[in-house]
Computed example of a mutant assay.
Amino acid sequence: MPVHRSGTAKTLRPRLAAAGTLLSALALLLTLPGAASAADSSVIPERGTARMGQGVIAHDGQKGGAAPIGTAAVQTEGVDVSSHQGNVAWSTLWNSGVKWAYVKATEGTYYKNTYFAQQYNGSYNVGMIRGSYHFATPDTTSGAAQANYFVDNGGGWSRDGKTLPGVLDIEWNPYGAQCYGKTQAGMVAWIRDFVNTYKARTGRDAVIYTATSWWTTCTGNNASFGTTNPLWVARYNTTVGELPAGWGFYTMWQYTSSGPTVGDHNRFNGALDRVQALANG
């Protein structure tokens, strides 16, 4: 006896139609403002993996990526590296013209770069002037706590002519809200807490690494650090563009991200003797 399925088909048609309507609604929802942030929550990186300039392309873009143009003054090539680069071929970089380097030492008060010794000592051993940087997470612990953690785990300074002052890497939050949930005044206070503690521990003013757009958004374009803390500005373009308030010039410029093998490339605003002068304090 044949089996009649007409009732089943009649039942499925409205269900399929409803499912199609639901999928269309979801597709529309993902095009609305704010939908991307919800979708992106599934790709939040693991704590400790943040690196200098990670948010620059995502927020400011990368235009050009070639060597900077229009700089009449002599500038000195440098790189910055983190655990993403693993064991770095320092001799190759040295032979290509790189004369200074910064190495990620710490993040928050919970992470130390597992490749720090190879990167920090290796750059020194080939003749580079080098220093270390701290990736700030102002939503986890105080500025003072993170400055102390940094100094205790590779962020110190010595007047040996080859050690640059430590860097506070303060930029977009890869783990959540771009300003780490802080007000502009709260962010300025956190940065002040860090740099004051770093100077008390080392005798040096920390370099501040940031991007103009982030600084404007998250500190209100505060101008109070320009007279004390050297500026390392991030802008992936052939010109440096507008600087954050308070700084009349940059000390270093991160102008491109070259991928995981060689790190980001930078220019020091001066000849090699100016890099040495910053190292000597």
Rank of each mutant, 00 (worst) to 15 (best):
258 S>A: 12
270 G>F: 00
227 T>R: 13
264 D>Q: 03
231 L>V: 11
274 R>F: 14
257 S>G: 04
233 V>K: 02
253 W>T: 01
275 V>R: 00
244 P>G: 04
234 A>L: 09
260 P>G: 05
259 G>H: 06
257 S>T: 05
259 G>W: 07
244 P>W: 13
248 G>Q: 09
267 R>N: 14
265 H>G: 05
268 F>D: 01
276 Q>P: 03
254 Q>P: 02
271 A>W: 13
275 V>D: 00
266 N>F: 09
228 T>C: 06
230 P>D: 01
242 E>L: 07
243 L>D: 00
258 S>P: 06
255 Y>A: 03
271 A>H: 05
240 V>D: 08
274 R>L: 11
237 N>C: 05
245 A>H: 08
266 N>A: 07
244 P>M: 04
252 M>N: 08
236 Y>V: 07
223 A>Y: 07
243 L>M: 01
243 L>P: 00
244 P>K: 08
247 W>S: 07
244 P>D: 05
259 G>M: 09
249 F>I: 10
269 N>Y: 11
223 A>T: 11
235 R>V: 01
255 Y>Q: 05
255 Y>M: 07
269 N>K: 12
275 V>S: 00
252 M>P: 07
247 W>C: 11
275 V>P: 00
239 T>Q: 14
260 P>A: 13
239 T>R: 08
227 T>Q: 12
245 A>M: 07
262 V>M: 10
223 A>R: 11
248 G>A: 05
227 T>C: 05
245 A>G: 04
254 Q>Y: 01
224 S>M: 14
266 N>Y: 08
235 R>K: 07
276 Q>C: 03
250 Y>V: 03
238 T>M: 06
253 W>C: 01
263 G>D: 02
248 G>T: 10
231 L>A: 04
236 Y>G: 03
270 G>Q: 02
276 Q>E: 15
269 N>S: 05
254 Q>D: 00
249 F>G: 02
232 W>L: 00
272 L>D: 06
246 G>D: 07
237 N>T: 04
252 M>A: 13
248 G>S: 15
262 V>G: 04
265 H>I: 12
275 V>K: 00
261 T>F: 15
265 H>T: 10
274 R>W: 15
272 L>H: 10
235 R>D: 00
229 N>L: 14
271 A>I: 10
251 T>P: 04
